[in-house]
Amino acid sequence: MQSKRKIRVLIAKPGLDSHDRGAKVVARALRDAGMEVIYTGLRQTPEQIVETALQEDVDVIGLSILSGAHRALFPRIMELLKEKGLTEVMVFAGGIIPDEDVPEMKKLGIKEIFGPGTPTEKIIEFVLQNMPKKA
């Protein structure tokens, strides 16, 4: 019998900002590309995001933030993922993240940062190509 594997993605919004237009457009595009998308809703703490990723056993996490708090929140999220043994989960991010912060964020283990104006096609393609090979 063939396995009915689906890509499960968590779209999460850390920080207090409420700009969810981008997060929702991406969520919808990934869903339309055949993925199962879990959305956390606004204003999630790093603890909530990581615990959700664990319970939902997702393959991918997309973080969206426009408040500027990424420098405080992303390191915490990546640290918690490691703590919980979720190292194989692929993480990407989007929102307003200045270019000069990108190297630092990538060093944390965030695979890619998508700035404003990124076509959703590109994000879908990226997810498909970088899907972790899960055991």
Partner: peptide
């Protein structure tokens, strides 16, 4: 939230 609330972490005076 006051500036010392846990949810305010990283957000105080930013936006």
């Amino acid at each position: 939230y006051d500036s010392d609330h846990p949810m305010a972490r990283g957000e105080v005076g930013v936006c």
